[in-house]
Amino acid sequence: MPGILVYCELKDGKLKKTSREALSIARKLAGSVGGDVVAVAVDAAYSTEKNAAALEAKVKEVQPAVLLFPGTSNGRDLAPRIAARLGVGVASDVDRLAWTDGKLRARRPVYSGKAFATVEITGTPAIATCRPNAFPVEEGAADPRVVNLPVPAIETKAKTIETKTPEAGEISIAEADIIVSGGRGLKEAANYSYIRDLAHAIGGAVGASRATVDAGWIDHQHQVGQTGRVVSPSLYIAAGISGAIQHLAGMSSSKHIIAINKDPEAAIFRVADLGVVGDLFQILPALTEEVKKAKGAH
């Protein structure tokens, strides 16, 4: 039966959270789309050319109505490649999906979240990449049998020769459930330690405003906003960030927002659920201590 094919990613043999999210929404859609949800993965080092060939073969065999990808670096690398090969369209980075009148409807943030576009994907399969953290993981639904796709023995034009893994404890803002972000209010690069300490204590990722990235205080990987990452974690803590429109666009879809700023008029307070007017150099260490105590008490 043509149903939904979900391209999944594994880490140490287990499904990554972003893949479990894609599977969860696939299960929800399956009732109206009809057919089965088939989870597939390539359990080998990522190669655009090899994975595209492996997935193409599976799509031709299963002939799904819908093909979903997690919106990770590799999901977003592969989805357009396979779409162009099949001659169909893609909706990227979607945060809502529905099956309406026999077609896949997707909502996607555009202009970094300043607006939302709803699009209809008319081809077969209808392809979408799922924005990380947008679809809740349904326990059980997200643990099907994963079909390992055979990797074709083709000669590739591009080869990965080295992968530099992150430092221990470093979490990517793209997938993080909690982000602690710092801005110009930190005054200098060394003071990112205030942000890192809280992020490590709470188990979150370190985010940054564009101003601090442009000043060279922190690497661009950490930048949240229109020329950085658009993020939607469960909890976003902004310290010393005034809230330029590009930054607000990049984080205002977070589920819970706490802002700490000494300027009571800062624009960041407009989007904050909890705003704290005060000195981050005093409040962050106190909060880090409280978080450590709370975690220790468990």
């Binding site: 169909v88 369209g89 893609v90 909706a91 409807r105 555009v110 979240g113 300043k114 607006a115 939302f116 576009a117 709803t118 699009v119 209809e120 994907i121 008319t122 081809g123 205002s252 879809s253 927002i257 700490i260 009571p264 307070f269 407009r270 989007v271 904050a272 659920d273 909890l274 705003g275 704290v276 007017v277 005060g278 000195d279 005093q282 409040i283």
Partner: peptide, 22 residues
């Protein structure tokens, strides 16, 4: 073709939440 716009909407204005003295 293929991916067709149905609607474009602005997100609801956030009014800002609770503010406390730090």
């Amino acid at each position: 073709q293929r991916v067709v716009m149905v609607s474009l909407e602005l997100p609801p204005e956030k009014s800002g939440g609770r503010k406390i003295d730090g």
